[in-house]
Design a protein around this nucleic acid. Structure first.
Lengths: 335, 335
DNA sequence: TTGAAAGCGCTAACAA
DNA sequence: TTGTTAGCGCTTTCAA
């Protein structure tokens, strides 16, 4: 004998129809406010009342299976791996799409292979998929999604991807901007922090590439500095920087930069005199620490603009380009 | 004429069956590794090959509609409103449930009414819903979910909720612990920061309640201090604290506490001599700032334990209790 | 070892 | 103005 607990009886639209003494079609018309459906006011109120009384909640899967369209938007993102700046933006995107009738869900993004990841998202048959990590969306992954009926395949990426509505923002420009700024401040032996934490290399790698590019241009040297996000790791790295006689460091982002900067202070290395420190993401944290942190701020397309684009893609299959992500050095005390 | 773009032809299991020269049933058997299904090795490999060649991806909604069960787990959480500690835990829970075959999605939690929110989650007909914010899950909301066939209704809350598998953790204990600690340090005029940011009051309110409770016990005074998470707001609040002659402040969490602590420094108010500061969540940030921040650390049930409980609830309808969330004062330099 | 067929909850023609 | 009905893509029983 099976020990499976019996599923409690679920309320379906048929139950509502029966209780209200109408057909299921009528229930559907009322509940969806189907345009061009002529239902008498009396019937409408009765159906609504019965649905409420029975605690009826529509079955999204059944609905979209039949209707052939879905209001689901999948945003693959690892919640702990994005900074405050990104997470606030994601929140706003969620709100903006919600206003347009979409159901946004975030889906942890830890499959390393883009195609395998796309297959997982495709199973949900969403109307749209929006990736924000660079190189998560490849042309091949997009094809998988398209074949699964995903109308809007949207990605933030360093360069346009075939078959993908891309909003371009090149993370390597962050590294380049940071190094450019350090050079301006007269620094020539520059370290670049590489976070050891899972999921962050997707952001860190291009930043390093950009830093290297700028360094080559200006004839200065770059030293990659692996670091975990702990007090001890920062302390050890601070000593290493002194040993290597670095005079500037790009800290990957504000969190890592602040941690490292504090460690410099503990070891009597003066910031910015002995070594200049630059972060990125322009978090409030940068203004919490002393010296206040120089940072690279970036400007993403507005959430509303993005939501509008998604909506257009879903309905018309096309949308006007989104503005390019741009970066700006916010100079403070640490450099 | 409609301008709706035609949906591209989707690959279904019927296509795979046709191309492989077998029935849809056989395809289903192969793809699901149905126990007790006897499919010849030759057929199996052929079906697998064809599925791969056609880029077939199963339709999760259709599957769960027919099967009557879902592998979806909905975790309602506003991604920007949770601290690093919580988001890492959520990440781990996601991984642990993923290992057990569940598909976890995070769903932004901005509907204020618990029942209305539950109705939205119920539409997805998930196997489980896990809330982490106190008082997001009421008995009534749980009933909505149960009626929708949700097998595991799990919530972190200050007290057990009827019909809900609750793991108990009372946020008010954080406020109480902070105030208790400040009293120990000889403080009697205590401020409690109340973050003005959207979505945070769910956490802040109980912390204030606990602070008040402890204050009453010890015969000290509490002053609620509304504050936005900006440099300017912190600066203004620091001045206000001096004016009110407060000698201790509980900063809601480490982020707010650190920001305020830095503002004290700017205005020549010595921490902890003039005013002691206590944060919460024990973020790395607390060790980034100087003086290092005293904090309240909390210990959530392990992600794996929670995942196991969810799995048991889904299958057996019951699971052993989870350990209570507990809190601990981590004394550092700021108090 | 495989195929035929019923039906999960819902929408949308089409009929009445 | 409302009801009947045919599926959407899939799983699973039963029969072959």
């Amino acid at each position: 004998m099976s020990t499976e607990p019996s599923t409690p009886p679920q309320v379906t639209s048929a139950d509502v129809a029966r209780a209200a003494g109408v057909s299921r079609a009528t229930v559907s018309f009322v509940l969806n406010d189907t345009p061009g459906a002529r239902v008498s006011e009396a019937t409408r109120t009765r159906v609504l009342a019965v649905a409420k009384e029975l605690g009826y909640v529509p079955h999204a899967a059944a609905r979209s299976l039949r209707a052939g369209r879905s209001d689901l938007v999948v945003v693959p993102v690892s919640v702990s791996a994005i900074g405050r700046l990104f997470s606030e933006w994601v929140d706003e995107v969620e709100t903006a799409l919600g206003r347009r009738g979409y159901t946004v869900v975030l889906h942890g993004d830890r499959t390393s292979d883009p195609v395998a990841a796309a297959q997982v998202w495709a199973q949900l048959r969403p109307a749209a998929v929006i990736t924000v990590n660079d190189s998560r969306m490849t042309a091949e992954a997009a094809k998988v999604l398209e074949r699964a009926g995903v109308r809007a395949v949207v990605a933030g990426a360093a360069a346009p991807v075939e078959g993908v509505f891309t909003f371009v923002g090149d993370q390597s420009e962050i590294g380049a901007a940071a190094v450019g700024h350090l050079v301006e401040r007269g620094r020539s032996r520059i370290g670049v922090v590489m976070p050891a934490e899972r999921g962050l290399s997707a952001f860190a790698q291009p930043r390093l590439v950009g830093a290297q590019r700028a360094a080559d241009e200006h004839g200065v040297t770059i030293t990659p500095l692996p670091m975990r996000y702990t007090d001890d790791a920062a302390s050890a790295l601070a000593l290493l920087c002194r040993e290597l006689e670095l005079d500037g460091v790009f800290g990957y982002n504000d969190e890592y930069a602040a941690l490292l900067s504090a460690a410099f202070g503990d070891h009597g290395v003066a910031v910015p005199q002995d070594i200049a420190v630059v972060g990125a993401d322009d978090l409030v944290l940068g203004q919490v620490v002393r010296p206040r942190l120089t940072s690279i701020r970036f400007h993403l397309p507005s959430a509303d603009l993005l939501a509008e684009a998604v909506d257009r893609l879903v309905h018309d299959g096309t949308a006007p380009d989104l503005p390019r992500v741009w970066f700006e050095v916010v100079a403070r005390q640490s450099s």
